[in-house]
Design a protein around this nucleic acid. Structure first.
Lengths: 133, 133
DNA sequence: CCCTTAATGAGAATGATCCTCATGTTCAGA
DNA sequence: TCTGAACATGAGGATCATTCTCATTAAGGG
C-alpha cells in the first residue's frame, strides 16, 4: 500500500485523472515527461502496480501482451469496450456474466472462479478518420 | 500458411494432440525435447504462430502476459474454463455473448467488435492436491 | 528541525518473443 | 529417382516490456 505521498505519485494520479484511455506504462511515462514531470520509468511501473493492486486502476492486456492501465470511475467489477485504434474506453455491464461464470465453473468442478470479458472495436471517431484517410 | 510438412511441424502437431492443457511456447519446447524431438525454440514459436493464424490452435494470455497455446477440438468460436494451477481446460459456450457484444458495441458507436471472455479457476484435482499439502 | 524509513532513479538483469542469415530440407517436376 | 528452387530451420543476437539492485533522496511523525 502507499505510505507516502510523493511528487511523482501525485503526478501519476493527476495524469490518470485526465486521461481516460487505456495506456501502457511507457506511454504514461512519456505523457508525464511531456507535462514536465521528472519521473523515472521504474517509478511509473511501481506506482501503476500499486494502484492496480489497490484496485484504483484497471489493467488489461493488449493483443501483444502489453499491460494497459486506466483509472475507472467505478470501483465495482465491470467490463470495457475499448477502441483498438485509440484506446478510448467505455465501462459496460456484463448482463449476468458473474452468475453464469459461477454456475459453469461449479458444473465442471472448478472453484475460485474468476472471469475476464472485454470487448474491443473501432470507435466512431476512429472509424471516421479511417474513412477520410 | 504452412506449405511444407517437416519433421518439426509434425512433432508439434503430435504434441498438441496429446496435451490438452494451455501451455506456453517454452513449455511446449521443453516437452518436445523431453520426447526426444530436436527442435529449435524459434521454430516452436514460428509453428505456433502459424497454427494460431490458421485458427488451428487457441491462444490466450496468462496473467503475466505470456502466451499460452492449446489445440481445441472445436474450430468454431468458443470460450474456456482454465485451471490456473495446471492449465487444464474445458471448452464452454458463452450463452448469447456474441449477440450481446454486437449490440453493446453498436449502442456505443463502435464497429468491428471482437470479444474475449475466459474463465479461470482451480480444477477439482488441483483443489484436492492443495487440500492434501 | 531531524531522524527513520519508504521512495526514487539509473542502469543492469530478466525473460519472452522476434529477427537474421547461413545452412538444411521438402517436394514438384524432369 | 534425381534436382533445384523455395521454404524451413536453428543458433545466437536484437528487441522490448518489465523488474531488480542499490546508492541516494526526501516524506512526515516526533
Amino acid at each position: 500500500m502507499i505510505q507516502r505521498m510523493t511528487r511523482q505519485r501525485s503526478a501519476v494520479a493527476e495524469l490518470l485523472a485526465d486521461v481516460d484511455d487505456f495506456r501502457s506504462a511507457q506511454q504514461l511515462h512519456e505523457l508525464l515527461r511531456g507535462r514536465g514531470n521528472e519521473i523515472g520509468l521504474a517509478t511509473v511501473y511501481r506506482t501503476l502496480q500499486t494502484l492496480a493492486d489497490a484496485g484504483e486502476v484497471d489493467v488489461l492486456r493488449a493483443e501483444d501482451g502489453e499491460a494497459l492501465y486506466r483509472r475507472c470511475s467505478r470501483r465495482e467489477h465491470h467490463h470495457h469496450l475499448v477502441c483498438r485504434r485509440c484506446g478510448t474506453a467505455e465501462e459496460i455491464d456484463g448482463p449476468g456474466v458473474e452468475a453464469w461464470a459461477e454456475a459453469v465453473g461449479a458444473a465442471h468442478g472448478f472453484s475460485d472462479i474468476v472471469h475476464t470479458m472485454e470487448l474491443s472495436g473501432i470507435c466512431a471517431s476512429c472509424a471516421a478518420e479511417a474513412g477520410d484517410a
